[in-house]
Write a protein that binds this DNA or RNA. Structure first.
Lengths: 258, 258
DNA sequence: CGACCTTTTGATTGGCGTCAAAATCTGTGG
DNA sequence: CCACAGATTTTGACGCCAATCAAAAGGTCG
């Protein structure tokens, strides 16, 4: 409930043509064939930390690829409690899922400044029709996302607070190293960690007070070091064990088509 | 942990050609055009209650559509605790998601006798390449599944035991009415309910003892009636409110392409 | 009818939530 | 560069929801 830092007005698009290669949607397109994808890119937008890209149940007609930064996908209950569904990093494809009225099934807020590249629904439809690799890619992307969501479901359903938080830390730490290598300092092993304890509580279904206690315990056990938006996992193997964390699922996403 | 009723040997395929129309995979194919789909159907299999179709981490090279019956998709933790990820009903498409070694990311067990129609990975690849509607359908199916999984995530993360169980009952009750109308008696409002309280506990992350207490409470409040594999929801509106249940998500799945 | 599930009920425990306040950190402006 | 307001994290005391342990009751099916 505390995440809405500053509910700025809806972000206006700025219409630069993207030049950055989308890792996700065009990830299976060979470099030499990537030229045609240019024609499909709609709008490039800069998002500021705290901005809401769209709210839950806002009617939308586009999806987008995250180029840089970190976004939080969440749902809110009637009582106002927020559940973080996913923490998105560069390359992730967002906003494709809707309800029957084409409303977003989750809200999206920027945890850091971010850049995105939008694709209108009609563009996506055209791409799927005209470019088989895009259709195949979309199938793989959606099904991979579903696998990860099931993993999170398992976390919440079966794991203790300690295990669940360990998973969350390992998951995001690992994905940052892969998807945002510029936020990872190889020397020190420290990553720039874009979320705070309150966010961790919204993702794990625990209270921030309890999250604090458990993080402190991890620190005392010398498993992690962390400070302001910084995280270092000192003992990755122990943390992985506690979390029942399977790095393969993140490092080597399955593909039916490539 | 108690779900593995009788771990029979792997189910052998019997190779009848399916005649039943798959609601899911071919759901967007117009009737007059459905003929060509016949050529793609691989194997038709009869599954007995309690059979495991494939185990978690079993290497598989096919997916299937459920024609009749009810299947349970689950993951098991190292300690042996089981989390039900999804309860599948006729029309659902299962087994498409894998890890990087093409192993199943969940186990599948039959909660009732069931019939399935298998599609080998190569058949699916061929269909996607040759038949645009199938590719589009697969995109929609995978993304719808992801939406539902996020809904369950929200349940486990934010809801009390009472709310979470109410959701589970409403969800399955509603889907049975839609996907298995023959199990719904319009007169009495009773559905044939394929799972027991132990399964509900595995799906909700609660203990069966606590599930029993809450179901008893619902019964005492005259919200439901239930007995051996039977369920009637007497007061659907109150149950929906308790559950924050949104029927639209189930009744009218969003499609980008149809 | 009898063995085996499944569900129910009771007593007790413990993990996590709640409430409250202090301590620490951060970013901003004078 | 320091001061200060606001956010974030930490700590303590206490309460409650759901887990655990145990056993009985009720149903189902061979």
């Amino acid at each position: 409930m505390t995440r809405l830092i500053a509910c700025n007005q809806p972000v206006q698009a700025n219409c630069d043509t993207c030049t950055v290669r989308s890792r996700a949607l065009f990830g299976n397109i060979e470099d030499k064939n990537v030229r045609w994808t240019q024609g499909y890119r709609d709008k490039h937008r800069h998002i500021k930390m705290g901005d809401v890209i769209f709210h839950e149940l806002e009617t939308i007609n586009y999806a987008f690829t995250l180029y840089s930064g970190c976004l939080i996908l969440y749902k809110t209950s009637i009582s106002g409690e927020m559940q973080i569904l996913r923490i998105a990093l560069p390359g992730d494809f967002i906003g494709f899922k809707r309800n029957s009225k084409s409303q977003a099934v989750y809200g999206v807020q920027a945890a850091t400044d971010a850049r995105i590249c939008c694709f209108s629904d009609t563009t996506i439809k055209t791409m799927v029709k005209e470019q088989l690799p895009i259709a195949q890619r979309l199938i793989d992307l959606q099904s991979h996302e579903s696998v990860l969501c099931q993993e999170y479901l398992f976390n919440l359903g079966q794991k203790s607070a300690k295990e669940s938080i360990a998973y969350l830390l390992m998951d995001l730490y690992t994905r940052i190293k892969i998807q945002t290598p510029e936020y990872f300092d190889k020397e020190s092993g420290i990553v720039h960690f874009p979320i705070n304890q309150d966010d961790i509580s919204s993702a794990s279904g625990l209270t921030k007070v309890h999250v604090s206690r458990i993080i402190t315990a991890f620190r005392n056990e010398k498993l992690i070091e962390c400070g302001h938006k910084k995280l270092k996992i000192i003992n990755e193997s122990t943390m992985s064990e506690i979390a029942e964390f399977n790095i393969d699922l993140i490092k080597n996403p399955f593909s039916h088509f490539s």
